[in-house]
Structure formats: C-alpha cells, structure tokens
C-alpha cells in the first residue's frame, strides 16, 4: 500500500476544490474534447455519493435532465475537471443518497442546510 501511495504522490494531481459532501448541490465544470476542439461543460446536480480514498476518490453527481435522471461519476484527481462550485449545502442524514433514485417530486428534494458549522481543519 505504501508503494501505491508513493506512486500517487509522484504522479497524481492534488485537487484544490472547495469541500462538499453528500447532499450538496454542485456545478462541475469539465473539459470535453471534440475532435481537436476543447470546450468546457457544466454538470449541475446533487452529490449523492463520495467514494474511495486518495487518488482513486470519486464523487457521483445526480441531476434530472428532461425528466430523466442522469448520474455522472467524477474522479477527484481528474485533470479534466476545471472547477467545482458548491451552490447549495444540503441537509441529509446519510452519506449515500441512493433513495433519490426512487424518489419522485417532493420526496426527491433535499432540504437546504441554513447553518453551516465552520469546517474543522
């Protein structure tokens, strides 16, 4: 394991994104390569899962697009992610929000966290 961590220290990017957690509403800007053109697309949705550790840590963002649920998994160390904006802090009681997949309408909403405790360093 030490050897693997060493490899990551040498080769992986250190992401500098604002802290967020499951239930938060985020906008992820990421690069898309079309032929030889590079443009930036924004994926906005709720974080429903943060998974893994170190260089293989990922987060899943879910949004409803045209009435269809769309989920996208982003690795934290991906060089294609240019920016992550936290738009809303959600008030949720679990770390993995898979119940949102089955929830419809009002039940699929996440309450906003009004009082945000300062994050401990």
């Amino acid at each position: 394991m030490d050897a693997i961590n060493y490899v990551h220290e040498q080769l992986s990017l250190k992401p500098e994104f604002p802290a967020f957690r499951a239930g938060d509403n985020v906008a992820v800007s990421y690069k898309i390569v079309e032929g030889n053109k590079v443009r930036i697309q924004v994926f906005r949705g709720n974080v429903i899962q943060i998974k893994g550790t170190g260089a293989t840590k990922t987060f899943t963002v879910r949004k409803i697009s045209g009435g269809v649920g769309v989920e996208r998994i982003f690795p934290f160390t991906s060089p294609n992610i240019t920016e992550i904006q936290v738009l809303k802090r959600g008030k949720v009681r679990r770390a993995r929000l898979f119940y949102l997949r089955d929830a419809i309408g009002q039940a699929a909403r996440i309450k906003e966290r009004k009082f945000i405790r300062p994050t401990k360093k």
Partner: peptide, 18 residues
C-alpha cells in the same frame, strides 16, 4: 504490489500495476 489508476496527459484514466 497492487493495482491503481492514473490520469495521463490526455486526461485518460489508465489502469496500472505497481
């Protein structure tokens, strides 16, 4: 030692063995 994955210059995720 084990496997992991890394991003190359083109932004592709490649599976690697240490």
């Amino acid at each position: 030692v084990g496997m992991t994955s890394l991003f190359d210059e083109a932004g592709r995720n490649i599976a690697c063995t240490v």
